[in-house]
Amino acid sequence: MTSIIEVKHLTKRYRTATALDDVSLALDEGKIYGLLGRNGAGKTTLMSILTAQNFATSGRVRVFGEDPYENAGVLGRLCFVRENQKYPERATPPQAFRTASYFYPNWNQRLAERLVEEFQLPTDRPIQRLSRGQLSAVGIVIALAARADVTFFDEPYLGLDAVARQVFYDRLIEDYAESPRTIVLSSHLIDEVANLLEHVIVLDRGRVVIDAAADDIRGSAFNIVGDATAVAAFAVGKQVLRKQTLGNVTSVVLKGQVSESDKVRLARSGVEVAPVSLQQFIVSSAAQPDKGDAWGTDGPPAKVEARQLVRNGGAR
């Protein structure tokens, strides 16, 4: 695999806020990436800098091995339709599609027409007068039909209903299977897109907190629920990502995998084991806001928490 996007120590500071804080990443060719994180985590800023629509305060970005800024050879292979993308005054969707088709040699007109039909996009009205969902649909049609080497989707589903979102996901898989390319899908609807992703990057307040293959994340944590004492005993020495207590019942999300013998042991002590979805994992990992490196893999704070848990459990 060759990296087609390389980001090294990228920092973006605005007057009052830091949007990206020492971000380093490498993206491979031909994968679907999920760029996940809460609103304001820095997703759009990162994509803007990768497409030379915004500028780094410090650090370095390489796309296809080159600086993308004013680089026609690089930029021509990218497509980044923003969540609040602007279109020329009075342009109708078909006009915007025709214009986009000039820019992309691999433009797939058949797919564009099919999507217009499936999204029930009005073709005679200026884009400015479309609804939020229809505006999103216009962006999706352009980004998908462009078949650019690297396509960035910026929260592409805003305002779309469940049916339209499914149309998007289905066509994305279909067209990607037909013509594999690099896709970066920024989203905060993690559960909806989880299965589409091959690799997951999670940003939290401008920092990369997870950068891992989706398969590695799935099953990299588990949830146990049961009597506080039993749960605490099991959690000793393990990294606790999240802990919730309801009366005498404790639920903790633990990092790692649960072995068959663990399962038996837990079942005997009446503790239930449940899987953790990608969304739960991300939320759990993010739920320790003020402990420095909250999502760290070597997690001293988490161990402290596990010990506290034991103490609390023992006191009862």
Partner: peptide
């Protein structure tokens, strides 16, 4: 729009 379509 030109930026979205990768124009310099």
């Amino acid at each position: 729009f030109s930026q979205a379509l990768g124009a310099t």
